[in-house]
């Protein structure tokens, strides 16, 4: 089975940085294919391995702080990424607007072929919904982004986000998807090939 390393930039565009956010980071990665190969320092840099066809895709997930004062650091974190996952809160319209700013920034300053995935996180209550699924889906389609509504609480659709990203990441060379030392093969590939979008 091939093992391929992919860099992913995770943006959590959630308005209040209270209890919810860190559990989402964790939820995004915890049901890892092989928990033993998860890095051990902490949850701001994590890996998640997903099986896709006959390849194992290992996502190296760079989380960055969303607070304004750290915002200027973001390009440093997403610059080498093959994909970015932007999470917003379906119960907060404002978080969806922030998401749009992130998309704009990524399109302007991010790697040219970066795959964008938008994840609407339903915290618990869909009756408190402020962002309609259709609106978000339309927006995602208009920017050729992956769209999915997830539930970090119940781990719904989380794996699907990664699988969808795998589908859009260009296939590795015939010689095999490989990587040593965790360097960015995903990025290398995305520079030389065009994705479907």
């Amino acid at each position: 089975m091939f093992l391929k390393n992919l860099d992913i930039f995770l943006i959590l565009s959630l308005q209040d940085t209270g209890v919810g956010k860190s559990s989402i980071v964790w939820r995004f990665v915890e049901d890892s294919f092989d928990p033993n190969i998860n890095p051990t320092i902490g949850a701001s840099f994590m890996t998640k391995t997903v099986q896709y066809q006959n390849e194992l895709h290992k996502f190296l997930i760079w989380d960055t702080a969303g607070q304004e004062r750290f915002r200027a650091l973001a390009p440093m974190y997403y610059r080498g990424s093959a994909a970015a996952i932007i999470v917003y809160d379906i119960t907060k319209e404002e978080s969806f607007q922030t998401l749009k700013n992130w998309v704009k920034e990524l399109r302007q300053h991010g790697p040219p072929n970066i795959v964008v995935a938008i994840a609407g996180n339903k915290c618990d209550l869909s009756d408190a919904r402020e962002v309609l699924e259709k609106d978000a889906k339309d927006y995602a389609d208009s920017i050729h982004a992956i769209f999915v509504e997830t539930s970090a609480k119940n781990a719904i659709n989380i794996n699907e986000v990664f699988i969808e990203i795998s589908k859009r990441i260009p296939v590795a060379d015939a010689a095999g998807g490989t990587s040593g030392k965790g360097f960015k093969l995903g990025r290398q590939a995305s520079e030389s090939r065009r994705t479907c979008c």
Binding site: T17, K21, S22, W26, I41, G42, T64, A65, G66
Partner: peptide, 27 residues
Amino acid sequence: LLRVCKLIYTIMQDNSGRMYGADDFLP
């Protein structure tokens, strides 16, 4: 440096028992 980061994480987690992302770690 990684060991220092690990130590900071350990302290944060030991004190609360929960996971922290970059929003908490960077500050």
